[in-house]
Structure formats: structure tokens, C-alpha cells
Amino acid sequence: MTTTTPPPTGLQPARSARGDTAFRAASFLCGFTVLAILGLIAVSMTQKALPALQAEGLGFLTSARWAPNEGRFGALAFIYGTMVISAIALVFAVPVSIGIALFLTEVAPRRLRKVVSYVIDLLAAVPSVVYGLWGVLVLSAVIVDAYDAVGRVLAPVPLVGRLFEGPANGRSLFTAGLILALMITPIITAITREIFDTVPQGQKEAAVALGATRWEMIRGAVFPHSRSGMVGAVMLGLGRAMGETIAAALVIGSSPRISAQLFGPGDALPSVIAFQFGEASGTYRSALIALGVILFAMTIIVNMAARVIVNRGQEARAA
């Protein structure tokens, strides 16, 4: 998207191309601005984060103790929380999203398809604070009973039981994950739907002609063609889940700890920044900015990974 390739030779217009030159310069400037802004954000944030990073050293990344009132700043619990809630969100959102997208492209009658697509797009436009308020006022109150029930059944199971034991709390990693799942479902659905639409009709018909059932056709023709696009869609959803702030902050429980108990409270990078920035000064403030740098790096890595996977898929198909 940001690479500027020269126009193919041999297609040069005969007349003077002053307009083209100006357009190229302008679009190059726009493209470059994006890079410059990204770079400047990274530089200035890192600069402001330096005091905390210097004070804590590597401990900032490896310690889970966050005690601003005693000058201890460790980000590990927040990194852990961010990853856990994003993972929970993906576990719930990905199958549902792909299911909706398949329903819309392969199963639903044309008229229904329009309505459902419209509703999905509408869900994507709901502000995150609305999801958060719904989560904290409705979901977190109702869901504790469900947690207790699940905990009673699953806690005695070896290994897996660790995830579900302990006192259930409506404001927990799991609730935050569920809210995020709800929020990223529309994005993943919208993108996978577009991708499924690009599967050539001929391939699908060929599969059916060979005697494939509808599911076998999806498995044999739709998925192989869409794999890289689906991964890209999931990664975009993951990127949004990791950066989502207020919805997660309201329901996550704000307790910096590393615990396998999914029904217990935790905390995530964006939530801490949003909730503690107002009262922070000095090294504390700088530590919060450092959390922002970590989040920035994590989202860039996820997006780059998505791009690499998508590109590799395209190359493989082209070859």
C-alpha cells in the first residue's frame, strides 16, 4: 500500500505529463507522511518512556509487579493480560465470523444476505464504550452464575481445570475476552465475506460437478482459495482486540497479575494507560508511556505478521 512503483514503460502518454508528475509528487508526499508520522510517534514516545525504562531496565518487561506508589513498574502482567484476552476473543470470534461469512456467501438467499450484511456492518460501527457499558452493567452481573457453573464442572479436570477454578468474578479476563470477541466479529466477518466472494464460480461448480456436497465444496474449493485472506482478516481482528481500550478496561477487573484463572480479574496494556494516566506524574507517567511503546510494538508485529502471511499465500498461489 505504501510502496510507490514507477508506471510501466511503454504506456507513457504522448502529451506532456505535467499533471501526472504533480499527482505523483503529491501522492508520494502523502505516502511519505504516513511513514513520517509513524516514525515520529515511535521516536517521541520512546523518548518520553526512557526515564522509566532506564530506572527499571529489563525488569520493565520481565517483572509482573506494578506498584506505582512504591516506584515499581513491571509490564509483564499487562502484556500477559493483553495476550490472554485477545486469544479468548479470537477463539470465540473466528469460528463464528467464518460461519457467518460462509452462511452469507454460500447458503443464505440473496434477500436475507443483504439484511444480515447490513446488520453486521452496523455492529462494527457501535462505539466501543457502548460495548463496555453493556459489558459492565449487564454481562458482568449475569455471567457470574455461568462462570460458577462452568467452574464446578471443569475445575476438577486435570490441567484444563486450572483455567476455570477459583472465585468467579464478573469483571474478569474472560468477560473482557467475550466483549472483544463481540467487537471484532463484524470486522472478521466483513473481510472474510469479501474474500469468499472472490472464489471463482468455476472452481465451486467444478467441485460440485465432481459430486462434492456443499461442505466438501467449501472445504475443497473455498477454503484453499481464501486461506491467506482469512489469516489476514483474523490478524486485523487481533490487532483491534489488542488495542481496544475502554470496552476491555471496564470489564477486565484492573488487577495486574499473571494467573491461569480465566474467571479472575486481570489487566491489559491499553486499560492501564487509560485508567491511570490522569493521576500519573514523573516516572509513573513515563512508565505508562512505556506501556504504550510496548503496545505499539506488539500491534506492529501482529500487522506485519499478517502482511507476511498474506503475501506468502499470494506468492504460493501465483507460483
Partner: peptide, 9 residues
């Protein structure tokens, strides 16, 4: 402090 290390429960 404005934030302290509250117990997890």
C-alpha cells in the same frame, strides 16, 4: 498512592 496493589479478589 493513587493506585495501590489491591488483592486480586
Amino acid at each position: 498512592g493513587s493506585t495501590v496493589e489491591w488483592p486480586a479478589d
